[in-house]
Computed example of a mutant assay.
Amino acid sequence: MTSGTQSQQIILNLENFPFFVGVVDPNTATELPSKLPFALLIDPKLAVPRLNLTPQIMDALDKAYGASSMLSTPLGESDLANYRMIEMLEKLKSIYGDDFKAKSFLEIGCGNGLLLNAVKQLGALVSGCEVGPQGKTASEKYDFQVVEPPLKASQFDAKFDCIFSYGCLEHVVDLEELFKSCRDILNEGGLFFHCVPNMDSSYTSKRLDELCHEHINYFTPRNSTRLLSCQGFSSVDSHLTTAGNEFFFWGYRDASKPLSWPGETETVLETETRKLTEFSYAIKSEVNHLSSSLERIYQRDESIGFYGGGVSLALLMPSIENVRFYDGDTSKHGKCWLNTLPPIQSPRDLKSDPVDNLIICPEHHYSKIINYLTNDIDIPESIKIIKLSEI
Rank of each mutant, 00 (worst) to 15 (best):
M1F: 10
T2N: 14
S3N: 14
S7P: 00
Q8C: 12
E15A: 15
F19S: 10
F20C: 07
P26D: 04
E31S: 15
E31C: 11
E31G: 05
K35F: 14
L41C: 12
P49S: 05
L53K: 09
A67R: 11
S69R: 11
M70K: 11
S72P: 00
S72D: 03
T73A: 04
P74W: 05
R84M: 07
E90P: 00
K93Y: 04
S104W: 03
I108A: 09
G109C: 01
L115F: 15
L115P: 04
N117W: 02
A124M: 02
G135V: 00
V147M: 11
E148V: 15
K159W: 01
K159G: 01
I163K: 04
S181N: 14
C182Y: 02
R183G: 06
N187K: 15
F192M: 04
F193W: 01
F193K: 00
H194P: 09
H194F: 05
V196H: 06
M199F: 15
D209T: 13
E210R: 09
C212N: 10
H215Q: 06
H215V: 04
N217Y: 05
N217A: 08
T220G: 12
T220C: 02
T220P: 07
T225M: 07
G232A: 09
S234T: 13
S234E: 02
D237N: 15
L240H: 12
T242Q: 13
A243W: 01
N245C: 13
R253Q: 11
W261E: 03
E270I: 07
T271F: 00
K275H: 10
E278R: 12
K284P: 00
S285F: 04
S291C: 10
S291Q: 15
E295H: 12
Y307M: 11
G308Q: 09
G310P: 04
S312Q: 09
L315I: 02
N322A: 08
D329N: 13
L338K: 03
T340L: 02
L341R: 05
Q345H: 08
P354G: 08
V355C: 12
V355P: 04
V355L: 08
P362T: 11
H364Y: 13
S367G: 03
L373Y: 07
N375L: 06
D378W: 11
P380G: 08
I383P: 04
I385V: 08
I386N: 03
